[in-house]
Simulated assay, not measured.
Amino acid sequence: MADMVLRNLDDDLKQRLRERAAKHGRSMAAELRAIVSEALTRPDTDPVAEFKRLATISRAMSAGRSHTPSEVLLRESRDKDAK
């Protein structure tokens, strides 16, 4: 196993790591290993593909519903703010 040194860690991040480690009943080093392991085993996602996936879900959820055009909503908001 390799050793690593993490330098110049912001004090706030160090405190958050300490609190997270305590919440999980681990040392700070064990918590950091868990974070790195989880981050590196998670599959990389393409942001554009993820956006398209979520947009497809959103369109499916609102299918068949009437929609107010954005320019109408914007005009109503501006008129309301002008009063």
Rank of each mutant, 00 (worst) to 15 (best):
A30S: 13
G25D: 12
T68V: 14
L54M: 09
A82V: 01
A55C: 12
N8G: 04
S58I: 10
D10W: 02
K83E: 11
L17T: 02
A49M: 01
A22R: 12
E19V: 00
A29M: 05
R20M: 08
L73F: 11
A21S: 10
E38L: 06
V72M: 12
K23S: 05
M28C: 12
M28W: 01
K14G: 03
H24S: 13
L73N: 12
L54H: 02
P47I: 03
K83C: 02
D3A: 09
M28N: 07
P43M: 00
D46W: 08
D79G: 01
N8R: 03
G25Y: 11
G64P: 00
H67W: 14
S27K: 08
S37P: 00
A29L: 10
A22Y: 05
A29K: 08
L74K: 10
V48R: 13
I57G: 01
L73M: 14
A21M: 05
T68S: 13
R75F: 12
N8A: 13
L40C: 13
L74Q: 14
P47V: 04
S70C: 01
A34R: 13
H67E: 15
R20K: 15
R65N: 04
K52Q: 06
G25M: 11
R75Y: 07
H67T: 11
L17R: 09
R16S: 13
L6A: 01
E76R: 13
E50Y: 09
D46S: 11
R53P: 00
E31W: 05
K83L: 12
R26D: 05
P43W: 00
I35S: 09
R53L: 03
M1R: 04
L40H: 14
L73T: 15
L6S: 05
H24W: 10
S66I: 15
T41P: 08
E50K: 06
M61E: 10
A49Q: 03
N8K: 12
L54I: 07
D79S: 06
A22S: 03
M61L: 14
R59F: 06
T68H: 12
N8H: 12
R33S: 14
L6F: 06
D11E: 07
